[in-house]
Amino acid sequence: MATSNGSQTHNSRTESLAVAHRLLHIEADAVKALESRVDEAFSRALDLLISVTGRVIVTGMGKSGHIGRKISATLASTGTPSAFLHPTEAAHGDLGMVTRQDGVIVISKSGATAEILNLIPYFKLLSVPVIGLLGNCSSPIGEKCDTCLDVSVVEEGCPLDLAPTASTTATLAMGDALAVALLTEKKFRPEDFAFLHPGGALGRRLNLRVEEIMHTGAEIPAVPPGASMKEVIVEMTRKRLGAACVVNNAGCLEGIFTDGDLRRAFERGENFSSATASHVAIRQPKAVEPATLVTRAINIMETYNIFVLPVLDADKKLVGIVHMHDLLKSGIGR
């Protein structure tokens, strides 16, 4: 009897796992289908949202409301002021949070949600743009929107075809697409993201500055302009940062020489017998200020394929150096 129960449990679990796999395929297909819908309507939605000088108000009922809250939160955290408006509460006074400077995103799978339909005349009276994330753009709500983004799906992942699954995933993905397109349009920077996330471990990591982790004083690999190549290589080896900074008597950076520069010089067959640090240094290397965010320093290194950055003060004097390993140890990755 125990074997029979065990077999039944195994068969039931196999069926459950198959349903789970099927759902993930359905949701993945639903998101994939959205790619072709980033079209003129999407561009129109971007134009409308960029023109908003107030907040982007997001509204939806039920599961659409939960997705709306997430979309609103994503917009707010990426530089587009936003707030969620519950349709039912809106009819009992919360409509006052919408101003003529705002824009509205309405979410509805059917495109006929009564609570949303009842609000649209008030949005029109305020002359605010209304963007629909709808499962049916040829619907009562769709007809009243300034532009409609089609988030319809072929089927839900729920085996009963009742609980919204693929449709909510598609709506959330389209909302994310709007948010990241907006942050791109607005030239939103890592520094801006850090400013909006000051709390907790994330805030600490994103607001970390180069001056907090850079090597200073005796840890800086530095040589004078007249140093021999032997002295340059010894300094690079001793400080273990893969570079030597060439610094003049005033403390200003004249250039930098890295282990990569050394390898390339040997490959070219250069003779270092009489060369000095000043002769081999790379002039005007990429550098940062002490207050530069670590996220920005990582971006510079990745963009220019370099592993060390001199740190200069306002007078262009060398005050530190930072290595890619230091940045990664800080816990910030891209």
Rank of each mutant, 00 (worst) to 15 (best):
L95Y: 11
K317P: 13
L293S: 04
A250K: 13
T14P: 00
T171I: 03
A83R: 09
K239C: 14
H10E: 15
N248V: 08
C245L: 15
V247E: 06
K144G: 02
C158A: 10
Q101V: 04
P164R: 03
F42Q: 04
R240A: 15
G200C: 08
A45R: 04
A30E: 04
S110T: 09
E270P: 02
F84K: 05
A33P: 00
D47Q: 14
F188G: 10
L75R: 02
A281R: 09
L134H: 08
H86G: 12
N11S: 14
R264G: 00
M324F: 15
P310Q: 07
G79S: 13
T171W: 07
L262M: 12
G132T: 07
G103T: 07
L149W: 03
P221E: 11
K187H: 13
G111F: 05
A244P: 02
K32Y: 04
M214F: 08
G65D: 05
D94W: 06
V210H: 01
G255N: 00
T147G: 03
R100C: 05
I300M: 12
R55W: 06
L182T: 02
Q284A: 13
T276A: 09
C252F: 02
K124L: 10
R13F: 13
I67P: 01
S4Q: 15
L327A: 07
T169W: 10
I67N: 00
L241H: 06
H66E: 01
F123W: 01
S110D: 01
A170M: 03
K124H: 12
M229F: 15
F84I: 06
L309A: 04
T184Y: 07
